[in-house]
Design a protein around this nucleic acid. Structure first.
Lengths: 147, 147
DNA sequence: ATATAAATGGTAATGACTTTCATTTAGAAT
DNA sequence: ATTCTAAATGAAAGTCATTACCATTTATAT
């Protein structure tokens, strides 16, 4: 179990959840691929180690990990299929996504000019603003040919 | 049939689609409520006029209307239930959404500082950028009490 | 009026996700 | 180390939005 995973396992413990092989492996998936994974993808990978794991367990634990702030949903209809994607919640690493509309490739970036808009917006609307997401769609270098 | 609807009907005709009562009424829903509607909501409203209309017809026509650029998906997991929302595609009226995470109320705004980011982003990533969406989440004045 | 491709309605299928419930297990208590 | 118990799991059935299929109807070109 690498450092990243054990940090997250600790966080889970502190929240009163038990440590299971299933949970460790799910966390391992998210830290290793560093990526944007669907429940199905996590399932298929973890299954190589625990063949009898249930997809239900994946869904349940992703939800739990979102509750305690370890994961967060990527909030994109993942290009082709309609399933949700999740990633490690890097709370101090504000970032947005650039998505290729052809192949689904996701690039992260952290340029952001939201502060200026945010203040105006909350004074005009009287909303308490908690969060924002910028999604940019385009075609990656490989997918630019033939509209 | 009001002006807005007949404009859109014309657009449909030009694209080679036939004009049916069902289609006219679906368009009417989107122009009148000016809003962010789910297939189910359109269905329930149109059913008051054509009680035998099929939900399938709603889905099919929403898809067709997206194809020809009349509608576009709002791209938000609609707060409570997981169904998609659609709106009239106002191509020259660039706007974004501020969503209340409690009651689902949506406010539109058009402040946007994307140009500056967009240029940098495409020169760094070599993506051809087509589109972007900014979504802001918060709590509306009514929903601000009791986290 | 007629022909015909397109549109519709009804029903069944799909697929992501959730619920249920009986069984297993992590970790606290002894 | 053993026992206990609530929490976690797995398997199967259930939801719910959306899609596919197919027989029937209809808009519109002729």
């Amino acid at each position: 179990m690498n450092d990243k995973v054990s940090d997250l396992v600790d966080q889970m413990k502190r929240c009163g959840y038990k440590v299971t092989n299933q949970r460790e492996l799910i966390l391992k998936e998210f830290t290793e691929k560093g990526g944007h994974l669907s429940a199905q993808e996590v399932y298929e990978n973890v299954r190589k180690v625990i063949p009898h794991i249930s997809l239900t367990t994946i869904y349940r634990n992703i939800e739990m990990l979102i509750d305690i702030g370890v994961l967060c949903p990527v909030e994109l209809a993942s290009a082709s299929d309609g399933s949700a994607l999740y990633e490690i919640n890097r709370i101090h690493d504000h970032h947005h996504h650039l998505v290729c509309t052809k192949c689904g490739k996701i690039i992260e970036f952290n340029m952001c000019l939201f502060q200026e808009i945010g203040k105006k917006l909350s004074s005009i609307t009287q909303f308490k603003i908690d969060e924002h997401r910028l999604k940019v769609f385009g075609r990656c270098p490989k997918c630019q040919h033939g509209r």
